[in-house]
Amino acid sequence: MTWIWSNTDYIWDKTLVHLGLSVPPVLLAFVISLPIGWLANRVAWLRGVLLTASGLIYAIPSFALLVALPGIIGLYPLRSSTNLIVGLTLYGVALMVRSTADGLRAVEADVLQSASAVGYSPWQRFWRVELPLAGPVLLAGLRVVVVSTVSLATVGGILGINGLGLLFNDGLQRSILAEIGTGIVLTIVMALVLDGLLVLLGRVLMPWAGREPGPRSRRQEAVTA
């Protein structure tokens, strides 16, 4: 415990850096997966290809991916924040593409036809009808992404990338149990806080959702489970 009190500045600094590394990949993943998920839902044969590809990317162990990416892309060094952000974004996209495709697919064809019939252009229809209706599934997917991103970002610590992961590295090397414990607790707390913020955001943006335990609830649970 004394370690914690004498290192509060250091811990706070690592926490902020960690937050700064975790949020961009989540936002990027959401934005990037929208067109990909839309495409997967639109072009029948692409769906299988894109979902299989994202499944394969997600299957790659994080440590190996972070090591291999700089060599494959060749634009940034191994021990850089960019490396971590690119890697985490890739995982986020791999998760979100499925959620986006599933969410858009769950929007009923009748609703879409009605929107077209009352004069929505395809562009308007997507932003004002399809996307909001797919919202709850997208939110469920994003919640998974945010929690796993915060947790995965610690892997960068082994490579020496700044963030809460450094507490693990340093704690192991100097045999400070409290340092590793602090890192674990802060990572979990950050993941839960960001997850909670997403839930709140969902309530604000989609006040209609989550009230009716409709037939889709089981599916959403499967996504959150």
Partner: peptide, 9 residues
């Protein structure tokens, strides 16, 4: 809960 648990830690 386990999803939030950092494996490295």
């Amino acid at each position: 809960g386990v999803r939030a648990l950092p494996t490295v830690g």
